[in-house]
Design a protein around this nucleic acid. Structure first.
Lengths: 262, 262
DNA sequence: GAGTGGTCTAGACCACTTG
DNA sequence: AAGTGGTCTAGACCACTCA
């Protein structure tokens, strides 16, 4: 166990009434912010911190868990605690579903990802008929049953998003939309061929901490929230023809919208 | 210390290799999800859980901290641990800055909040000239100095958002925009009067865990992320005339966008 | 004053990673 | 084998809340 070079981390203020583990978290956070520990770098081990600050191990662990909760560091069993590198961010443009993007053979996700130099994958594709949840039913105008299309998206092997599309069954039954691969331009192209010319989309954006199931499915590190996006597609008759419910790893996305001033 | 009625919480599976504190967190989460503890209800005390599960107090606290990290519960010193009530959500419509909303005397925030039956406040209003950060400078076309307008917004006494607007100094200096109260319609109305007719806005949306400063300023509970929104306003000449950097308590907001299909 | 959560100690054993 | 983080125990004292 190498001794910790003094000065990199300050010492504690015993007169302060700030809890010791918070002071330790503060020192480490400052050191990270000031670049004394760079992205991906290993923090001093728990034993080193115990010795340096003269506290018990639980106090050190408590401090480290604060930083984990902030998404600043992550731990690897048997290796150490590391400054979390910021992963490359995928930008979702608000015009990604515009009609002019729908003539290609590939999905929006695939095209965008390849343009950004990433390797896209789609996973766990599942298509089935089911009874809608209360929320989905309300958004779709109370259909008795819906067609559900679920899938997970990965970039360079990392799962980043999963999405579930719901369409009223009277629209989607026995159409290419009910096939695993709906064909070029995706389900929006098929909807238009079926006479549902799309007029506009509503998107609702929320952020929250993930459920345990989402942590597992998206391999989320501690301190990473999710963006929850619900998009409803309307045809020119004003009918809601699809709802897409998407959960994204927040550290992998930035959403970009362009709004007219008028 | 009243005994814990059995059945509300299951018991542990000693054959499982899942950590005990995770199993306890799972039992509590299930009980909350199934409505056995409703919003605002108090969970069993730590001592009760210690007795019920036959583990040490640290193990129980570890389990509770998992649920706090998920934003499911919050603790109050001396009182107990409670199921987090979901606060009323403020909906931000994407047309909130459309020109037709700018003829009123009140700010968008005030009008919206009052319409929703909430009591709006603006706080910590601060206007000053400063050197832009790298990011702001890039977005605004590299002005040497900017006018910065910072403020915090509260709903029914709860801080929910703070925002900083930056404008190139050559546009804003010695105009009503440099006044604490820029007058009816806000700074966008003033910009148009100054000949900068607004064309469109770009918005970038991210979500992340808050910094300690944000936790303090927004009184954020554990397990509540922030939504970070950066809006750039462009005039009809294509010039960026304002950047607004906003940080919102994610449990208080849902952003709503309407996108044309074409 | 009794009950609650907040902080901290000083150990222990385990699982994982690396040389 | 040595070092790391993961889990858990059995205590202790404190600060806060409520009756």
């Amino acid at each position: 166990m190498a001794p910790l070079s003094s000065g990199v981390l300050g010492s504690l203020d015993s007169t302060s009434d700030r809890a010791v583990f918070r002071q330790i978290a503060d020192r480490l956070r400052e050191a990270i912010d000031k670049g004394r520990f760079k992205e991906g770098a290993k923090l001093p081990s728990e034993s080193e911190l115990v010795e340096h600050f003269g506290v018990s191990r639980m106090t050190v662990r408590n401090a480290l868990s604060v930083l984990q909760g902030e998404g600043l560091v992550h731990s690897e069993h048997g290796k150490g605690v590391f400054v979390r590198p910021r992963p490359p961010v995928r930008r979702l443009a608000s015009d990604r579903f515009a009609r002019r993007h729908r003539d290609q053979g590939k999905s929006a996700f695939t095209v965008e990802a390849e343009a950004a130099g990433s390797r896209p994958e789609v996973d766990n594709l599942q298509v089935k008929e089911e009874r809608p949840t209360r929320d989905i039913a309300t958004r779709l105008g109370e259909p008795r049953k819906v067609l559900a299309r679920r899938r997970r998206y990965l970039l360079d092997g990392r799962p980043v998003e999963f999405a579930a599309s719901f369409l009223p069954l009277d629209i989607a039954r026995d159409t290419p939309i009910a096939q695993p691969n709906p064909g070029p331009g995706g389900i929006y192209a098929r909807l238009e061929e079926l006479g549902h010319r799309l007029d506009h989309f509503d998107e609702e954006v929320r952020a929250r901490m993930p459920t345990p199931a989402e942590v597992k499915s998206l391999h989320l590190a501690a301190g990473v929230p999710v963006i929850h996006l619900v998009r409803t597609a309307y045809d020119t008759e004003g009918r809601a023809v699809e709802v897409c419910d998407t959960v994204m790893a927040a550290d992998a996305y930035v959403l970009a919208y362009q709004l007219p001033a008028n």
